[in-house]
């Protein structure tokens, strides 16, 4: 494999109000890898994810997706290859029906209507929500909303799936379904989450963020069982790793 899927070098970002949310972040993620980004509230996870589809541009540093930098000409293409599932599905599902929402992306790409419809149906099928196609999004349960939000992104056939807090607001069953669904995706996955058990199940690698800096990057089991590390950065050792001992 030539270029890594995602290559981030020394990225800094300061919000207009002066908040330094990222202070020099670097990492590489290869094709097909599943990586979790964890950290306390305000650590900079969401800010970092917004750099991955060019919604935010780094104040300093470099972001490359599939070897490509974000330029005016490339940005549309890169956005197509990086699908972002946002924290609140209500922000992502803005169309009158589930179907319209899933078809929104393909139609924007200039795909002909029949093909857009086919893709929308296929994506809904993929997340098991095809029966909801004519429903208005505000009538869905939290779990259904989340699944449909994922479908809206799948309809663009992205190479990378970026998810911010995918399991928030889900009940245990909805969460279990989500984990099973995500486990079936072959895409490169980047998941920011406070749900460390989900992280253990889905991502072999984890990046720990604190105060806009990477404080650890390595195998999930080892980092998350490292009690002092976890506690130092506002996290705790997940239950499933409780009975195991760090090497």
């Amino acid at each position: 494999m030539s270029d890594p899927m995602i290559d981030i070098t020394d990225v800094c970002f300061t919000y207009p109000d002066g908040t330094e949310a990222l202070r020099g972040v670097s990492f590489r993620i290869g094709h097909g890898e599943s990586v979790a980004i964890v950290g306390a509230n305000g650590a900079g996870k969401s800010t970092l994810l917004q750099h991955l589809n060019g919604y935010l541009a780094p104040t300093r540093g470099d972001v490359r997706i599939g070897g490509q930098a974000f330029t005016r000409e490339r940005i549309a293409e890169i956005r197509r290859s990086v699908g972002v599932v946002f924290q609140d599905p209500d922000d992502q599902l803005f169309m009158p029906t589930v179907f319209d929402d899933v078809a929104f992306g393909p139609l924007n790409l200039g795909v002909p209507p029949e093909e857009a419809e086919r893709r929308a149906v296929a994506s809904l099928d993929r997340v098991g929500m095809a029966h909801l196609r004519e429903r208005p999004p505000h009538k869905l349960s939290a779990g259904e909303k989340r699944a449909v939000a994922i479908a809206t992104v799948l309809a663009l056939s992205p190479d990378v799936l970026v998810m911010d807090e995918p399991s928030s607001n889900l009940d245990p069953r909805g969460r279990r379904r989500l984990i099973e669904l995500l486990a079936t995706f072959e895409h490169t996955k980047i998941i920011a989450s406070h749900d460390l058990e989900l992280v253990v199940e889905l991502c072999p690698r984890v990046i720990v963020l604190d105060g806009g800096l990477i404080v650890a990057d390595g195998p999930t089991e080892r980092l998350l069982s490292d009690e002092p590390l976890m506690l130092a950065h506002g996290l705790e050792r997940p239950h499933i790793l409780r009975h195991r001992h760090p090497h």
């Binding site: 956005r79 803005f94 078809a103 992306g105 924007n108 419809e117 663009l156």
Partner: peptide, 22 residues
């Protein structure tokens, strides 16, 4: 803030100012 987040999610799915209805 919500409008801004919606806009973000629209842009990340290729929104170009035109909302197309199928």
């Amino acid at each position: 803030d919500r409008a801004q987040r919606i806009y973000r999610s629209m842009v990340s799915r290729g929104f170009d100012g035109e909302v197309r209805l199928l």
